[in-house]
Design a protein around this nucleic acid. Structure first.
Lengths: 296, 296
DNA sequence: CTAGGTTACGGCTAACGTAAGGATG
DNA sequence: CATCCTTACGTTAGCCGTAACCTAG
């Protein structure tokens, strides 16, 4: 099993499952039927598993095919979220509905919302600016964007807000780190006195951490890095414990590449809030997006 | 924005972000540096967004690049789960650790577990059989597989078991269906008297539904279909309300393509259980998998 | 005969590697 | 001048569409 599969072939497989024949799936993909046949055959070779039961009256998925189609649908859903989010970033300036979001919200929440919004309001083009929390507030107040999404702890002045979710910072270490097998919760004072891998000053993650550490005796950071993935990489390499958003490390923790250390006596929760100009009524698409965001 | 991006290019982008230069990312991918340069450039053209800040001392991700890399990492994680799961299906027979799982568990839970198991026990090859719940029990009792995973409601005789998660059946309709705007919860009797789109008899989903309907006056099914995706397709087309696992419709509900109808007075929850031969001790890899599965 | 499938073949796109050219500390 | 990136170029591999053939109801 070398290379990763290509998404077009996975889409083709899913379509065959739903439409019942290679020919119809080919039409849906805008290619000729023999091309679709060959692509699926190649996918079967590459995965080493038979996927279709072919008959002169159509094709149905084998048991393995149903499984693969199910897993493929999840890959495709993630890919489509990516494409929608990229489209929103590209249209940042000239869109019908302009919003700004901080990194964490933009990365983990916004793509989902866009999917549902697009379904409810198919014609609305969303433009997305990704900036830090302070800039989100500035753009909303300045009227550059209609709606903003920020991560706590503080909600800026002069803005109406609604909580749309909660996040918390977590301490993670490489699986080989002594703390990975800890059974007793880590105390805040102990964490503060340990050199850590953290995000750069000014990021929402760092600010939440600084606030929680205030008043504690503390060690300087071991490493300051400018992106979540860089911090994760350093933690996995065993450099030191890292502090990051629970969203950001979800996948690594699920896969066992990082281990979350239980923590006590330190509040690292933070609200994720939608904000808009106080007293100004929202346009219809903005109200829809807000309602979508609030429901999840 | 036509076609979907290809996964190799996304991997390349993520690697550039983590490794700091196109050259190192190229080496990681096993291709020449100019090829990597061209691929990323093509990705930028295709997405219509600048992704890299190129300098003579390396390349760093732009703000948009960091976003895209974050979203790409999620797509890649899903793709890798798919590949691991396919490998397990392919090795069904001749693996070190052989397990059997029913559809729902195999589709939504097993890929995650495999990721973590592979991390904890890198050398273990897992073989996965996907069969219905009754067959899972038979294979465990017959010694064909060491561990099984079934969806309730009944736990087979003669097997030790442990609950590894919970699922529930949900009622979903197309967004245009009258029930989509319902505010009051649906009563069990009303649901039973409505023609539905359901899975075929013998599937775990169908059995749970039949059990819940027992004693109620009921209408026949509107459609019986052999796969979750077929049922979802019919529901989206507006054929009738459908009843499916919450896991199965998660993505569609999040994207607004299906709407969940609130339900009262009918217990459609079901436990997902690991099962093994009573009195037989588990091998080390099986025990590890069980512990991984139990923790999530 | 129709509706579905595969095989065969020629054309073209696209990805690769090597080699050469340009910028920046 | 060392490093990293890009452009140029020739080769190769893979995908596509058309056409021909096969099979079952």
């Amino acid at each position: 099993m070398r290379g990763l599969p290509d998404l077009e072939s996975l889409r083709l497989l899913v379509d065959v499952g739903e439409l019942g024949s290679l020919g119809r799936a080919a039409k849906a993909a805008g290619i000729a039927q023999p091309s679709a046949s060959k692509r699926v055959a190649q996918l079967e070779r590459r995965l080493g598993v038979p996927l279709l039961e072919r008959t002169p009256r159509g094709s149905t998925l084998t048991t393995e095919g149903k499984m693969v189609a199910g897993w493929a649908a999840q890959v495709l859903a993630a890919a489509e979220e990516l494409m929608r989010a990229v489209a929103a970033v590209r249209h940042a300036g000239r869109a019908h509905l302009r919003v700004a979001a901080s990194m964490t919200v933009a990365e983990y929440l916004v793509p989902r919302w866009l999917g549902e919004l697009q379904h409810r309001e198919p014609d609305v083009q969303v433009g997305l600016d990704v900036v830090n929390s302070a800039d989100v507030a500035a753009r909303v107040l300045g009227g550059d964007v209609e709606l903003g999404f920020v991560e706590g702890p503080s909600v800026p002045e002069g803005l109406a807000s609604r909580v749309v979710g909660t996040d918390r910072l977590v301490v993670v270490v490489a699986p080989g780190h002594p703390w990975a097998r800890r059974r007793t919760a880590l105390r805040g004072a102990e964490l503060a006195a340990t050199p850590l891998v953290v995000r750069e000053p000014g990021s929402g993650t760092r600010e939440t951490l600084e606030l929680a550490f205030s008043g504690l005796h503390r060690a300087g950071p071991r490493l300051e890095l400018g992106s979540n993935s860089a911090v994760k990489g350093a933690a996995q390499a065993g450099a030191a414990p890292a502090v990051l958003s629970a969203y950001a490390v979800e996948a690594e923790v699920a896969a066992g590449r990082l281990v979350e250390v239980p923590l006590a006596g330190l509040d690292l929760g933070r609200r994720l809030c939608a904000v808009w100009r106080r007293g100004r009524s929202l346009t219809a698409p903005a109200a829809t997006l807000l309602s979508v965001a609030t429901q999840r």
